[in-house]
Amino acid sequence: MESISTASSATSVAAHKPAAWRHTVFVLLILVVYSIWAALIFTGHVVLFEYELTEGPLGNSKRIFPEKSTVQLTHGRQNIILFLHPACPCSAASVDEFHELMRQGEEDSVGKVVFFMPPSHESEWSLLPLIASVKRIPNVSIVYDSSGSQADLFGAATSGHVFIYDSRGILQFSGGITGSRGHTGDNQYFEIAKRTIIARNPKFATTPVFGCSLRGIR
């Protein structure tokens, strides 16, 4: 009986070993699969955030309002000028923030939005809802920059670039007012712009711009 019992337990142990081995392999496999899964997701997010946090190029801003520009300086009031690429998906966030900025400026500010509008795309881009949404903002006028010359004059190279000139035509602020590409909401860059508007004697400030390039191949 004892020998049978011993044999039986030996068989049980022998049968248990492959089961444990399979379980270990299964757990390892699961760990590998989940690791790969996590890595892929992590990588995707890194790519996503890197793209959204990549600043656009800044042009040579003119400290004095360019006289040759077709964009007219409104004397006696703050001039908030926004350069936009009408087809850039990030522009909508900039318009939202611009709208908020205009509210902050109240009656002391006038807004001017310069849309890059090359003739080759004018028929298509002029119908975009973004332009209509800009038109609904009070105290804002629209200027179409067909050749990109206006952007060059002001030194704007990225869509969403905001220039704030005081009533004398002196540049007070140059940069973006969104936290990243295409993201609406409170952010420190907007706050800097806002402070520029509210403060009577602000210091010149500059912020990064997140958006599409206004230059490229024109």
Partner: peptide
């Protein structure tokens, strides 16, 4: 955000 632009040229948006 279908496309990202550089002037008049565009490419597929990273999104």
């Amino acid at each position: 955000s279908p496309t990202a632009w550089e002037g008049v040229t565009s490419n597929t948006h990273v999104h």
